[in-house]
Each structure stands twice: as structure tokens, then as C-alpha cells.
Simulated scan of single mutants.
Amino acid sequence: MEQVGLNHCFGGQQLRFRHQAESLDCAMHFSVYLPPQAERGPVPVLYWLSGLTCTDENFVNKAGAQRYAAEHGIAVVAPDTSPRGEGVADDPEEAWDFGLGAGFYLNATREPYAHHYQMYDYISTELPALITKQLPVDTERAAISGHSMGGHGALCIALKNPGQYRSVSAFAPIVAPSQVPWGHKAFSNYLGNDQATWQQWDSCALIRAGAAQVPMLIDQGDADDFLTEQLRPELLQQACEESGYQARIRMQSGYDHSYFFIASFIGGHIAFHAAAMEQ
């Protein structure tokens, strides 16, 4: 694990690392904010999963999360959104919504993507094991959050790993990828055309299948250009109501899909996770 960046921020440190990821068979970058409380011992950790086209740096540069992470004494770990490098398969048409920058936080089973695109294993297993050994974080007190494609990833990973995360939140998540164009494209290429396998990576399907309860907070802007075609929060609301699953889903008037939206509500999300970590 090689440190490649350091900035002081709100009494803590904004760090960036590079390492060789075994699950992805490539070099990966990830960013970590360590609050000032980390100088005294391990602190809880919030994983942040970014959306389509992003890297590990978008959130740390635009969301303003460090101020709130410092107040609550929480580390924030932001991984990249896909495997990278020479030999990593991309969208043959070089589109922005699939391939590099669009790993969808699943384990691909279809070639040529299966070799590198094992983002689920990387986020849920390899990265926590790495930072536990190398950084002053307490991965027993963990939460996960994300935006758009990353919101999909955060919800799925939390639902598939009961007990690993104290809470989960999302901004404008793709809640039902098996039912929207972004998901159709990604799943057919990463997983193949058997739609039964898609349900393993669909938050609505996981909730209907009886996923264990985890504290859940979701914010969605009603001025989001992707709301009706790609995001469809009403499908998650329906799945939760039919299954008796408790989730706080808020529609925020006038907000779009941008980091201005995330920056407006990230403080509340971090406070939500901090409260869950204290339980």
C-alpha cells in the first residue's frame, strides 16, 4: 500500500493510496479521510461508493464530507468505481455508462469482464481487510453509503452482508437495476442474459427475498434528470412496504443529481451513520 497523496483537512488528514488489488488483478487507488480522533486510536469507518464515470477523488473533492467526519470522529474510505489499467476490458463502444468507471459493484461472471470486474469482493472483503491492517480504523463499526450507481452498490452490499454494516444510506440510488436501462446494459454484459441471476444484485429483489433489516436512509432529488427512467425510487418504496422493511426515503424538492445535492445533505447522512455506530 503506497501513499500517493496527503492534505491536512479539518484537523485530520485526507490521504490517497495505491495498491495491487488481488480480487481485481490490477492496481487500484482509494482515498481515505482520517479525522483528528484517529491519532488517539481506531475510529469507525464509512465507505463511500461513487457513481458512473467517477474515481475515488470526486467525492473527497466535492462533497465537503470531511468537516462532518471530523465532528463525529469517523474515517471515510472512498474506493475507485471499477478496475483500471492495461488489459482491463472496457465498453467496446467507449460509452460512459459501462466498463471503466462503471463497475456496478458486482462480481462479473461473463467474459471478458469476469477476470477483473470483481468489485463486490473488493469492496466487501479485500479493502476492509487491507485498511484494518494498515490504518487506525475499526471495521467492526462500519457503515456504507453511495451515489447513483454507488448508491446501488451500497444498498446491495449492505443487504447481502447482514451484520457487517451498522447502517446504509444513498443519494439518488439505482434501486432496481434489473428494471432500468443502465442496469440492463451492465447486467447483460457482466452477468449474461439469465435475468434470474440479476436479482442477486438488485436491492428491491433482495428486500423482497427477505434481507435482514439494516438502518437505511435515502435522499432523492425531484429535479433529477434520471429520476423517472433510471432511478425509480418508488420501486424501492413499494418493495419495502410489501416486505415490512423499514427505510427512510426522502424526496428533496428542487435538487438534481449533482454533487451540489450530495453536499447539501451529506452532513445529515454522516450524523445518521454516527448514531448507528454508537449502538
Rank of each mutant, 00 (worst) to 15 (best):
F59T: 03
A196Y: 06
T55D: 07
L49C: 10
H116P: 12
F17C: 08
A172P: 08
S188Y: 03
G87D: 05
D90V: 07
P233R: 05
F272N: 05
G268M: 01
G51D: 00
E94W: 11
M251V: 13
I123H: 05
S253E: 11
L6D: 12
I131S: 00
I74W: 02
V43K: 05
H29Q: 14
W96L: 09
A89K: 11
P112K: 01
A78N: 13
S169I: 01
Q134R: 15
A211S: 12
M216I: 02
Y47I: 02
S264P: 02
E71M: 12
Q195A: 14
W182E: 00
R141F: 03
Q195D: 09
G254A: 06
P162K: 10
L127V: 02
G183P: 06
E111L: 08
G151N: 06
A27M: 08
A129M: 11
H152K: 12
Y33N: 08
Q279S: 14
I262N: 03
I270T: 07
H152E: 04
A114C: 10
Q220P: 06
N58P: 08
A176V: 06
G267A: 03
S264G: 12
E57W: 12
S169R: 03
F59K: 07
Q37L: 08
G192Y: 01
C156T: 13
F260G: 14
H19D: 09
D202S: 10
I74D: 03
N7M: 13
E2K: 15
L159H: 10
K160V: 03
S167E: 05
S178K: 09
R166I: 02
H257M: 02
F272A: 04
Q3H: 09
E242V: 06
N193C: 09
E71K: 14
A108F: 07
A271P: 09
W96E: 15
H147Y: 07
E111T: 13
K160N: 13
I266E: 00
R248L: 11
A239G: 08
Y117V: 04
D121C: 14
D121A: 11
L231F: 04
R16V: 01
A276L: 05
G5Q: 13
Y255M: 14
Y113I: 02
T109A: 13
V77N: 02
K185W: 06
L217H: 07
S178A: 15
P162Q: 08
S148P: 12
D194S: 11
F104T: 03
A89D: 09
E234V: 09
Y68L: 04
G192A: 04
H257Y: 04
V214D: 02
Y68A: 06
A143F: 03
M216Q: 12
H273G: 07
N193E: 11
R84V: 09
F30G: 04
S31P: 08
E57N: 11
A129W: 07
Y165D: 05
S167F: 01
S31N: 10
N61S: 14
V214R: 03
F98L: 07
S243R: 10
I174S: 05
R67K: 14
T81N: 10
D80V: 01
H257F: 00
H184L: 09
G103M: 01
R248D: 14
F171D: 00
V60M: 15
A176I: 02
L127I: 04
